[in-house]
Write a protein that binds this DNA or RNA. Structure first.
Lengths: 143, 143
DNA sequence: TCCTTGTGGTTTCCAATAGTGACCTGGTTA
DNA sequence: TAACCAGGTCACTATTGGAAACCACAAGGA
């Protein structure tokens, strides 16, 4: 990595093991928020969690419901979410084989925490789009 | 939308323009949650919003506080957030030039919505890491 | 006058990864 | 024979992100 490329080291660099500040709004690499966003900030994870929040589903059912996901990304994301303990994979030894995915209590917790963000997105993304348009009109192209 | 299981494959494809189901948990490409995650799900946006939630800061101040961010990513992310109307850039014609970044009311709204997710991450990422370890121990390598 | 430091970035180059489509297995049902 | 299920593999492209160079300006020192 980059070792000591900071000219003024008299600052409390947040890369240090840990600051003592209470529950510490950690802005550094060891921040759990960073870890969560690395897992969940991809294109499909939240969508899958949201869908499984409604009820258990099978692989091709998910594939049909989610527009534009490839098999590779779906199976990859499902495996990652299963590894994280956010959803459970149940293999039923039926006729060929039935695989059911259902959300776990931990996943449901996360989904509840995400719901506020999702609600904000659904009500306020219009304001964001308006801000983008205003920005583009002001300094984006017009003088 | 609480019909539980989906046995029949004759389900409405969500890639279609729009479903009429109320506020519609949209799983498709036009979902505002997708748009929000595309903006905010990157490595630095949430961290910057979180930091600016404490108070206005300057470019190099942010750079020092956030461990491991490059100038390119910082300026790029700041510009994107400014374009989204989530933070404001103020240029003060002082000695060389002072640029201050501060969060906007819209950004503060989003930050409040994200806080629940951040809190979840800080309290429950341990459970996720434990689940990962259990998964790796079970089927990851051991037979 | 030149040299260095510092601020607030932009740009170029490059490696790593995320993501896609197409095609493959292998079994079952009709 | 064809289609469905549950994926896996390959080849390819697009995006992300880092390092470092560059730019314009100003202050301070020799």
């Amino acid at each position: 990595m980059q070792d000591g490329t900071f000219p003024s080291p008299d600052y409390p660099e947040v890369t240090a093991p840990r600051r003592d500040a209470g529950r510490g709004d950690a802005y550094a690499r060891d921040c759990p928020t960073r870890a969560l966003l690395d897992r969940v900030g991809d294109k499909w994870s939240v969508l899958i969690l949201l869908l499984l929040g409604e009820g258990a589903m099978r692989f091709n059912g998910l594939k049909r419901r989610i527009g534009g996901v490839s098999q590779k990304m779906l199976s990859q994301t499902l495996r990652a979410l299963e590894r994280d303990g956010l959803l459970a994979r149940e293999v039923l030894p039926t006729t060929p084989v039935s695989v059911t995915y259902r959300i776990t209590p931990l996943g449901r917790e996360l989904l509840a925490a995400l719901r506020l963000m999702i609600d904000w997105a659904e009500t306020r993304m219009g304001a964001v789009v308006a801000a983008q348009a205003a920005y583009d009109a002001a300094c984006g192209r017009a003088p």
